[in-house]
């Protein structure tokens, strides 16, 4: 039984995320050259590829970062046209972007950001806002899972955090917000082995039949801990190969060149 089946994925279910023939350019340079991707609820997809292949661009475009020109193609999230939504509306609809380089925001504390973001999501879902005690209890439990000291909550967002702390903070935010779809852009980069396990535990704790994860990564080491249902290789702006976890292991042995050459041929 596949991991997706274990998570309750139904083969005939409509995709949560459907990307079709997406072409994107930045500054006149085409970066995505016809990407198609279908992610159903409960699935974990890994997108791998060499530097400059367009992995981060795909994550940013789906999350709505400005500066990218969509030439053609479409993306839908639970049947809604993703590109018609502002970035904040995409987030409130349940799409979460875990940043490769989380920014530091001096002067804004973590607790405030988390509470503002959570309450925005809850309002969108028709839920009441959490009061201070409920919020604190929730954040404490998630912080414990991510091995983040509570004192972090009173500090400015990511200010003075190490690279690993920033990544754990990203996953903490994800766990508090409980998105339907998490796009995690190289969440494993810069992590030591112990931190990688903590981050992986956090991601795994979110897995379930109603949630999906898209992991963008260079290396398969994260996939030892977060086992994907599907692995895709992005090269020269398009997906050149898809498979299961065995593909990631093959990439670990052979590198990307052979696929890049095939894509160029």
């Amino acid at each position: 039984m596949s991991a997706a089946a274990e998570n309750g994925v139904q083969a005939g279910a409509a995709p949560m995320l459907e990307v079709r023939d997406l072409q994107v350019q930045v500054g006149g340079q085409k970066v995505l050259n016809g990407v198609s991707l279908s992610v159903r609820a409960g699935e974990v997809h890994a997108i791998m590829g060499p530097n400059g292949s367009g992995k981060s661009t795909l994550a940013y475009v789906l999350a709505g970062r400005p500066g990218y020109e969509i030439i053609s193609g479409s993306a839908s999230f639970e049947g809604r046209d993703l590109f018609a939504l502002a970035p904040e509306a995409r987030a409130r609809a349940g799409l979460f972007l875990g940043f490769q380089y989380p920014v530091e925001i001096p002067g804004v504390n973590n607790a405030y950001l988390l509470k503002a973001a959570l309450n925005a999501a809850r309002r969108e879902r028709g839920q009441s806002e959490l009061d201070a005690f409920e919020f604190l209890a929730l954040v404490r439990s998630k912080s414990h899972l991510m091995q983040i000291d509570e004192s972090f909550l009173g500090r400015a967002v990511n200010e003075g955090f190490s690279g690993g702390e920033k990544k754990r903070n990203e996953i903490l935010q994800m766990l508090v917000l409980e998105p339907k779809l998490a796009l995690l852009d190289e969440t494993d980069s810069g992590l030591d082995i112990d931190a990688l396990k903590v981050v992986a535990n956090g991601i795994n704790s979110l897995r379930g039949p109603e949630r999906s994860v898209v992991l963008v990564t260079h290396y398969q080491r994260l996939l030892d801990h977060v086992v994907p249902d599907f692995v895709h290789v992005l090269a020269r702006g398009r997906i050149v190969r898809s498979g299961d976890r065995a593909l990631a292991l093959e990439l670990e042995r052979r590198g990307y060149d052979w696929l890049v050459e095939q894509a160029a041929a």
């Binding site: 409130r92 979460f96 989380p102 925001i105 969108e124 917000l177």
Partner: peptide, 14 residues
């Protein structure tokens, strides 16, 4: 704009 996008990507209105 990077800071602004970070907050937007967390669902906080503009």
């Amino acid at each position: 704009e990077n800071l602004l996008f970070y907050l937007l990507a967390r669902g906080i209105d503009r």
